[in-house]
């Protein structure tokens, strides 16, 4: 018996239709942490990129006549003990932090991936390589970076290398774990049995499965690299004082922090906001890429 259209419309709906919002509003609803973290990071990247056009002046222009001015309409973030404009220095410092963070994240992930694949696929190399990684991980990362920086002169490149060496073992361990669990999978066995070359197995079956956890790990490495860079610069073992980085600005503001706290606090707020943005992005990615974890944490 055909049901008249009006009758069917009266039927109570057991479940309201699932309305999936599409477009960017839907994305923000589903992944608020990615949206907030990513948005904040985007703003900071834009600040870094366009710093020279954001009303900044020469960050190392010394002007003794107007030193340690409090923040005002003319000097938004005040001036430091040499009369340099803190606003310009902090904005240009964004570049240093972002460059160090992103470079360390990329290089450490690439090298860690290579070491992890080697360790997971070449059985005789696994033991020695992983013991070496364990040893590197047993040295607290900041101390390892300090020891490496003591060998060379301070420069952005050396800071990136020092922090990268300290972070590689974390990626290598992660990748090795993924490779070892994937090797037990039937489809990998099948690929080996049918004589697929190892490189193709890696490209087809292994790499796609390591991308998600590696992306999450890379965000955490980026955040930790920025903090370590600021710490190194703060204690005088990082970026040379001539380059304005957040750690350097804070180190220079130290002597005056009791009377002019803003010189220390403003770069600290920028650094915290950047690291927070990246951590939020990392947490969001982890939840989005691995729904099992999302429920637990």
């Amino acid at each position: 018996m055909p049901v008249p259209a009006s009758e069917a419309a009266k039927q109570p709906e057991l479940l309201p239709p699932v309305k999936v919002r599409r477009g960017w509003i839907g994305f923000v609803r589903r992944h608020p942490t990615i949206a907030i973290g990513g948005g904040l990071l985007l703003v900071l990247v834009l600040i870094g990129l366009f710093a020279p056009w954001l009303g900044t002046v020469d960050p190392s222009a010394i002007a003794p006549a107007r030193r340690t001015r409090a923040p005002s309409a003319e000097f938004w973030f005040g001036t430091d003990m040499l009369g340099r404009d803190v606003y310009s220095r902090v904005l240009l410092g964004t570049r240093v932090s972002l460059v160090v963070g992103f470079s360390v994240a990329c290089i450490a992930t690439a090298i860690g991936l290579a070491i992890g694949l080697l360790s997971g696929f070449v059985r005789w190399a696994d033991g020695p390589v992983m013991r070496a990684m364990d040893a590197l991980m047993s040295i607290p990362p900041i101390l390892l970076a300090i020891a490496l920086m003591a060998l060379t002169r301070g420069s952005i490149g050396n800071v990136i290398i020092a922090i990268t060496i300290a972070e590689i073992p974390r990626v290598a361990r992660l990748v090795r774990g993924v490779v070892l669990s994937l090797r037990e999978q039937a489809y990998v066995d099948a690929a080996i049995t049918t004589g697929t070359p190892t490189l193709r197995i890696i490209r087809r079956h292994i790499l796609p499965n390591t991308i998600a956890p590696m992306m999450v790990q890379a965000t955490y490495i980026c955040a930790s690299a920025m903090i370590i860079e600021a710490m190194l610069s703060f204690i005088g073992a990082g970026i040379p004082p001539s380059t304005p980085s957040w750690g350097n600005i804070m180190a220079e503001g130290r002597a005056l922090w009791q009377v002019k706290p803003y010189i220390v606090f403003i770069p600290a707020v920028f650094l915290s906001a950047t690291v927070l943005a990246i951590n939020l992005l990392g947490d969001g990615l982890r939840d989005a890429l691995d729904p099992r974890v999302a429920k637990g944490i």
Partner: peptide
């Protein structure tokens, strides 16, 4: 927990010293 993990230790130090000591 997310926030505490993002603020670098020296920033916390100066903040606490400024509030509770100064």
């Amino acid at each position: 927990a997310v926030f505490g993990f993002s603020v670098p230790v020296f920033a916390v130090g100066y903040m606490l010293a400024w509030v509770f000591a100064l």
